[in-house]
Design a protein around this nucleic acid. Structure first.
Length: 579
DNA sequence: GCCGTTTTCGGCCCGACTGTTTTCAGTCG
């Protein structure tokens, strides 16, 4: 049966099948390289910018990295029948609850197998019961300590919070770093991990320090006001849980290895594996202490992160690019992008005022924008049909336009652009006629209702909006709210094609819970020649700060300055906007 | 199971820590 979005099977579902296969094969103690092949292809497919099903229909499965003959056949079977016999058979031998056991820290494939085969444990609850009744400690390879650790692992598993938003984790990390920096014993300090790569969600915060007096650092760290619980305290590594239930690791490393450690702990895992494979081919070995010559184990780099790449003949690769999404190929050809920065941003193109559902007045926003040194901002309140958000009707919009013109006459360091976030209504029409839209400098169109519609209908609404000669930008194009709402069932590659054809920009909505478009689609859009526009969608002054998160997505999507609408001068911006 | 500036066959990233072991397996990042 065809699904509402027209795609029979989504990438994430295919990825899950291969990931499960890898886990089951692990438990069955299969060849570890075979397991890695499945793991790798699962990650690739989960991050793939196009629907794998579309690739399959085009007969180009073999162009996906890590898909060979066997996996291609399995993808075909999944798409054509909705099932995979190989997978179904594997699942019969290992119940899915046993896979769940792997999520408990200190339980890996060998122990999961042991518990299942010896005690029939096939879910986490049974594991907890068995541990409490001390049934685990007498199993081969187990003991009292191991049993205690598993109980602790179950406890952590049960209250594990979802991944934290970048917008939540980054301020906490910066606060902690500021506090630690106040210690004179701290020499170098930096964020590592997915937070340094600026992923839109973060599993835990990793911080690296060099110091001659680690005990001082660790003492301060474990007694920070943010700490709810100390999870581990040692001289090289400590871990805490913050009051927001975010796990923070702090590591102290030698100055001579700081660069190597930073590289290593920044990841991503896929990036590091590729890097190390390349090193081996060049007679080098990379670990978290440095780069070593294989022949005599002589250390040739480690202090500076830049050296690690240098020794492999590569230019420095920015943390945001380290996802094994083509950065090595680009680096070899010296074609890495010169990533956009906050300094390139000339203005914010998506802001709400108290005329609709914002908290601050137009005047307050203008004052704040001037303080930030912006050259322009766009005021884009909601339109009339979004009455719950105080959407503007024609009369109130006209009043706002007049107000903006008055403000623009009162100073000359900032221009306020007259705009609207016009609703794309359920039937696909816009909430204002062209006669009104044409009075505005900038028109953002967005879907706020009917986002559970069928794919075809949603595509029609967005396509028609982009075809309107006055619509400049599509706001939050997929509509996702991280952790709460799935993206609309749209074909983003098709949206990108239409955007290119109609010269419509796509928004990078910088609100931390949206982060929409995401990095993968941003990269696709760039490759198709579509301009992106970072908008904070601010409903209050403090949210103007979210621009930095928008820049994070832009950088993760390989954008340079000239791929972003709001890096242009006002004159250039006006030229780029269709109308 | 995949893949090719060593290879169409023989490789496939690296090290720390822990606990259970008398030399190492399992787990993790």
């Amino acid at each position: 049966m065809e699904r509402s979005d027209g795609i029979l099977i989504k990438n994430i579902e295919i990825a899950k099948v291969f990931d499960d296969i890898a886990k089951i094969l692990q438990i069955k103690n299969e060849n570890r390289f075979k397991i890695r092949a499945y793991e790798r292809v699962a990650v690739t497919i989960e991050n793939f910018p196009m629907e794998v099903e579309t690739i399959y229909r085009a007969g180009q499965l073999d162009e996906i990295q890590g898909v060979g003959e066997a996996i291609a056949k399995k993808i075909e079977e999944l798409i054509e029948t909705g099932k995979l016999e190989y997978y179904e058979n594997l699942k019969k031998s290992i119940p899915s609850g046993v896979l769940e056991l792997l999520k408990v820290s200190d339980v890996g494939p060998r122990k999961a197998k042991l518990f299942y085969e010896e005690l029939g444990i096939d879910n986490v609850d049974k594991l907890e019961e068995a541990a409490r009744e001390h049934k685990l400690e007498n199993l081969p390879g187990m003991g009292k300590k191991a049993e205690e650790n598993i109980l602790r692992g179950i406890e952590l598993y049960k209250r594990r919070e979802k991944r934290a938003l970048l917008g939540v984790a980054l301020p906490i990390a910066e606060e902690i770093i500021d506090r630690l920096k106040s210690l004179k014993e701290v020499n170098q300090i930096d964020i590592a991990g997915s937070l340094r790569r600026r992923k839109d969600t973060i599993g835990d915060i990793d911080i690296l320090v060099t110091s001659k007096k680690p005990e001082k650092i660790m003492d301060k760290f474990t007694h920070l006001p943010e700490v709810k619980e100390i999870l581990a305290e040692g001289l090289t590594k400590s871990a805490i849980l913050t009051r927001q239930n975010i796990h923070v690791d702090l590591r102290v490393v030698e100055p001579d290895s700081f660069g190597a450690a930073l590289q290593y702990f920044t990841g991503s895992k896929a990036h590091n594996v590729r890097l190390r494979e390349m090193a081996v081919k060049q007679g080098l070995k990379i670990n978290e202490y440095g780069v070593f010559q294989t022949k005599d184990d002589k250390k040739v780099a480690g202090r500076e992160e830049r050296e690690i790449y240098q020794k492999l003949g590569l230019p420095f690769i920015m943390p945001e690019l380290r996802e094994d999404r083509g950065e090595f190929e680009a680096a070899r050809k010296n074609q890495l992008p010169e990533l956009a920065t906050m300094e390139d941003i000339k203005g914010d193109l998506h802001i709400h005022t108290s005329d609709s559902d914002g908290l601050n007045t137009l005047e307050e926003i203008v004052k704040e924008a001037r303080k930030r040194g912006y050259s322009y901002i766009a005021i884009t309140d909601h339109s009339q049909s979004l009455s719950i958000a105080g959407g503007l009707n024609e009369k109130r919009l006209q009043e706002q336009i007049e107000m903006i013109e008055k403000i623009n006459n009162s100073f000359n360091d900032l221009i306020v652009l007259k705009g609207i976030e016009v609703d794309i209504k359920s039937d696909g029409t816009l909430d204002f006629p062209d006669s009104i839209l044409q009075k505005l400098d900038i028109v953002i169109a967005a879907i706020h209702t009917g986002f559970k519609q069928e794919r075809e209908q949603l595509m029609d609404r967005l396509t028609r909006a982009m075809q309107n000669p006055h619509v400049n930008i599509i706001a939050h194009p997929t509509g996702r709210i991280i952790g709460y709402r799935e993206p609309y069932a749209v074909d983003m590659q098709e949206i990108i094609r239409v955007a290119a054809k109609t010269n419509t920009a796509l928004e990078i909505n910088a609100s931390p819970e949206r982060m929409d478009l995401n990095d993968i689609y941003v990269k696709s859009a760039k490759e198709k020649g579509v301009l992106l526009s970072i908008g904070t969608d601010a409903h209050q002054l403090s949210s103007l700060d979210n621009m930095a998160y928008g820049i994070s997505i832009a950088r993760r999507g390989w954008l340079e300055k000239n791929h972003l609408l709001n890096t242009f001068s006002l004159a250039e911006l006006r030229k780029r906007l269709k109308n």
